[in-house]
Design a protein around this nucleic acid. Structure first.
Length: 304
DNA sequence: GGAATAACCTGGATGC
DNA sequence: TGCATCCAGGTTATTC
């Protein structure tokens, strides 16, 4: 599933082809892919036709593509295409005129001064992902909005999302204070994108396993040392996954060229229930938690 | 206001 | 073989 490493791989893959490209045509094949867009498909198409992409940015699992001012507009543009891949969304770069993908929802035909004509295809099996045209707003802390941009701006619908742990402006102290102020299970806190962004079910399980913390430990029961250890493991897991191109299951996640990542082979806990813990040899278990699976070692990660 | 839960959605896997 | 059911999980609206 697309979490921070997967979305970052997509952002980095899109940037060279999209930054500086002009949008020549927009085709919305399924309006359900516009659930985050305030208007209809026609307004989405009108807002993008003829616009030029100025950057490819990301915060947590959200991507956005700031746009240069529309022809005839006065002053700086404050609009961007904002996207979320949901559970099965893909952003694919294809040759211009390529055959439609099986779950293609939206296609942008672009012209890049160096790379020529290309198609940007938003494909999504489960339709939890979506694109939108959104207004950019100033960041609350004045720092850059996220990876891939120096501008202190984020789309309005991303403003409530916390910075991710790989963001230079992420505050370790604020994160620790938030965790320790909550009685909720620490895994629930890790999945709360207003506390820390970019972490989903896979990397939450992996980080908690690495930090030897039971997923249902209340945040308020963790010591400062434990919270710092957990944050360090979150960062380490995300960085390793990023280096390996992300985690792919059943082709649910691929990069812009349709290639899978390799981190699934490096998982220690997620999806390995019934197998031996790589650390102590105890059989890993899976429990239902928040309508999803929670994978952990009952010996290394004792319930407190 | 914080915390927990339901709903959204599709296709692969599984069971009968 | 074909049909029904279960399962995966990110975000948000709703409920407690």
């Amino acid at each position: 599933m697309p979490e921070l490493p997967e979305v970052e791989v997509v952002r980095a893959g899109l940037a060279p082809a999209l930054v500086g490209a002009r949008i020549e045509a927009v085709t919305v094949l399924d309006p359900r892919a516009l659930t985050r867009h305030a208007g209809d498909a026609a307004s989405f198409e009108r807002a993008l036709n003829g616009r030029t992409v100025s950057a490819a940015a990301r915060r947590g699992k959200f991507l956005w593509l700031p746009l240069e001012p529309a022809a005839g507009a006065v002053g700086e543009s404050s609009e961007a295409i904002v996207g979320h891949l949901g559970m099965s969304g893909q952003m694919l770069l294809r040759p211009s005129g390529a055959e439609p993908e099986r779950h293609e929802r939206i296609r942008l035909d672009i012209a890049h001064p160096a790379h020529g004509d290309l198609a940007v295809v938003f494909s999504d099996q489960r339709t939890f992902g979506s694109l939108a045209v959104d207004q950019l707003v100033l960041t609350a802390d004045g720092a850059a909005g996220g990876w891939g941009t120096d501008a202190p701006q984020v789309p309005s619908q991303v403003a409530h999302i916390a910075r991710d742990p790989l963001d230079p402006a992420f505050s370790d102290g604020r994160f620790a204070a938030s965790v320790r102020a909550k009685r909720s299970a620490v895994k629930r806190i890790l999945l709360d994108q207003t506390v820390v962004s970019g972490v989903g079910n896979i990397y939450a399980d992996e980080s908690l396993w690495a930090a030897r913390i039971h997923p249902e430990t209340p945040g308020s029961a963790l010591s400062d040392r434990a919270v710092n250890r957990l944050l360090a493991e979150v960062r380490a897991v995300l960085e390793r996954a990023l280096a390996e191109g992300g985690t792919s299951f059943d082709s649910q996640y691929v990069n812009v060229n349709g290639q899978a990542g390799y981190f699934a082979h490096s998982l220690n806990a997620y999806g390995r229930d019934g197998e031996s813990c790589p650390r102590c040899g105890t059989k890993l278990v899976r429990e239902s938690f928040m309508n999803r699976g929670s994978h952990f070692c009952p010996k290394c990660q004792r319930r407190s």
